[in-house]
């Protein structure tokens, strides 16, 4: 047990522009254990996709990793040369993106793409690779896999295509899968199928999953733990049930309240005033402070570090010692984590 598959420590990503350095990710830390699905949620611009790109080493200039460490099974991978990183992508980290067509080459048969990846990363014969590819396609629910393995990507409907991408991501038996908005482009009825499939396949193989999405519903269905990101930082991280049902961070509370649900027929949705700051205008202190109803003096000056509160880690001074008494949740269990 013990060692996490993916461990991110104080990650910082910057963009160097003519008008100075913009920090898009500012001190993000989390772990993902074997067989665990970590959901990363946030609104556009929160830095969730960028965190994923950092892990797979696909941050293009002018962006750069400016600090922190990324460890895969205890080895640092953020400072590896490009060639070594290419070997890790596909072999040890599988990827699923929003648009299946970015992962599939339209000019090659899907079977060839899967067998090629298997052959490139695993020591098996060509016949064995093809057999595995068919098995995998069957497993992701492609009917008549023996026949369809020789089809081209455009011959598959949207949901099937995303299933093929899932097969491609898993074919080299990776330790970690990064899924960036895997269901956003799909219809609701198909989305549910893909979520269930991702969940099942990774549980069976013990693959760790970093599931990046803006859709809280998908997270609630799939993830074990969830990290809520805001303006390049993790606002709150904890077990999915705890964060969804009982969020602590004011942003997480607002976010959960703003989602219309089938059950609660609330007349008005909770709304957070304003919108997320641009990268060049992130306020000092707590980035959420201008939109926060409970901000007090300390939030203007200091940046909150994650605090352990029950099962949650919350980056909010409301739960620190000496905070105004407002949130009752900050009970005796409160202690600084680092």
């Amino acid at each position: 047990m013990s060692r996490p598959v993916l461990s991110i420590r104080d990650l910082k990503v910057e963009f160097v522009t003519r008008r100075g350095v913009l920090r898009a990710i500012d001190g993000v830390s989390f772990d993902i254990a074997r067989g665990e699905v970590l959901g990363v949620v946030g609104e556009s611009g929160a830095g969730k996709s960028l965190t994923g790109s950092a892990v797979i080493g696909l941050i293009d200039p002018p962006g750069r990793i400016a600090g922190g460490e990324i460890l895969l099974n205890g080895e640092r991978i953020d400072d590896l040369p490009a060639a070594a990183m290419r070997e890790i992508r596909g072999r040890r980290i599988g990827m699923v993106f929003q648009d299946p067509l970015t992962s599939l080459n339209p000019l090659y048969r899907v079977g060839d793409q899967i067998t090629e990846t298997i052959l490139a990363h695993l020591d098996v014969s060509a016949a064995e690779a093809r057999r595995r590819a068919i098995d995998l396609l069957k497993e992701v629910g492609i009917p008549a896999a023996e026949r369809r393995i020789d089809g081209y990507p455009h011959e598959f409907p949207g949901g099937m295509r995303q299933r093929v991408v899932l097969a491609l991501a898993l074919c080299a038996e990776p330790d970690l899968v990064i899924a960036d908005e895997p269901t956003t482009a799909l219809d609701v009825s198909v989305q549910a199928q893909i979520i269930a499939l991702l969940r099942r396949l990774c549980a069976e193989r013990g693959t760790a999953v970093m599931l990046i999405t803006h859709d809280m519903g998908v997270i609630a269905e799939t993830a074990d733990r969830v990290a809520v990101m805001y303006a390049g930082r993790v606002a709150e991280i904890g077990p999915v049930r705890a964060v969804v049902k009982d969020p602590l961070h004011p942003y997480a509370k607002g976010l959960m309240g703003s989602i219309p649900t089938l059950e609660g027929a609330a007349d008005r949705l909770v709304q957070i005033p304003g919108s997320m700051p641009r990268l060049n205008a992130i306020p000092r202190g707590c980035a959420f402070r201008p939109r926060c109803g409970s901000a007090f003096a300390r939030c203007h000056i200091e940046r909150p570090e994650p605090l352990r509160v029950g099962e949650h880690d919350v980056a909010c001074f409301l739960y620190a010692q000496g905070a105004p008494a407002e949130p009752a949740a900050a009970g005796p269990g409160t202690e600084a984590r680092r």
Partner: peptide, 8 residues
């Protein structure tokens, strides 16, 4: 990440 920072 850079193209769509939520505009303030």
């Amino acid at each position: 990440g850079i193209v769509e920072p939520a505009p303030a």
